[in-house]
């Protein structure tokens, strides 16, 4: 690894933080997205309303503001909660909001809303006949979901998931602002110390490009797989 005035190893660690953060947030976002999609497709008006409120609010407010609200507000919220515990039950604990977890939760929460929209469209595009056929052959609801609806849905959801992932990856850079030591934070600190922005920012930018390019390749491979049986593969 290139030394980069001694910042090389730290940049590498930062890159790993970025990657971990992105992957964990993606997992949270996909789970939240599936839940949101089911909520928005639900016939229960309250559940539907909650789903709609969540996606509307999240998509109307900048990521950075949400992140600051959850990170700075989260600490105070938890402090208030532990104070209550102390007063009521004499339990004295202190929980420090971890910037990494706050990052994963915030980014997961934000992209859960976007994933929700992606999955909703994808679920709706699966023909009911396919599920009917599954039930006619005695599949349970869960089996039919896992074996029939999910793979059929993925074909429609994949391009959207791919897009969301690319945006999510870039959004991880924002955690550097709330104090998490990802590669952008390391590069920003190094820049301020050495006044060499290009030396640090350009490799970081190239790392993002590299991950994006690799992801694009992986998603096109996946698209091919889920497109099997639907004619044209691109």
């Amino acid at each position: 690894m290139i030394n980069l005035q001694g910042y090389g190893p730290r940049l590498l660690e930062g890159a790993w933080v970025t990657f971990e953060l992105a992957v964990l947030s993606l997992i949270v976002a996909v789970i939240l997205g599936l839940l949101t999609a089911s909520a928005k497709l639900s016939r229960n008006r309250l559940v539907h309303g909650i789903g709609t409120l969540y996606t509307t609010l999240i998509r109307g407010v900048p990521d950075l503001v949400l992140m600051m609200l959850l990170f700075y507000g989260g600490q105070i919220g938890i402090n208030m909660l532990t104070d209550q515990l102390y007063e009521a039950f004499d339990i004295d604990i202190f929980i420090n909001v971890n910037a990494f977890i706050a990052g994963v939760v915030t980014i997961g929460l934000i992209f859960g809303a976007y994933m929700g929209e992606t999955f909703r469209g994808a679920f709706q595009s699966v023909e009911e006949g396919q599920m009917e056929a599954a039930r006619a052959y005695g599949m349970s609801d869960w089996l039919a979901f896992r074996r029939i609806r999910f793979p059929l849905m993925m074909r429609h959801a994949l391009p959207g998931i791919g897009n969301n992932w690319m945006v999510l990856l870039k959004t991880t850079a924002l955690v550097s602002i709330i104090g998490l030591t990802d590669m952008v934070r390391v590069a920003a600190e190094a820049t301020k110390a050495t006044h060499e922005p290009f030396l640090f920012m350009v490799p970081v930018a190239m790392t993002y490009l590299l991950i994006a390019t690799l992801s694009e390749w992986i998603f096109s491979r996946l698209a091919k797989r889920y497109n099997a049986g639907f004619g044209e593969t691109h």
């Binding site: 690319m166 870039k170 959004t171 991880t172 850079a173 924002l174 550097s176 602002i177 952008v184 590069a187 920003a188 820049t191 006044h195 922005p197 290009f198 920012m201 350009v202 970081v204 930018a205 993002y208 490009l209 994006a212 390019t213």
Partner: peptide, 22 residues
């Protein structure tokens, strides 16, 4: 377009903000 769409705006901002003196 590939570079500017593939990297975070924050990095582009840092590059211009700190790089402009160069």
């Amino acid at each position: 377009t590939y570079v500017f769409r593939g990297t975070p705006l924050l990095i582009q901002l840092y590059l211009v903000y700190y790089g402009v003196v160069f």
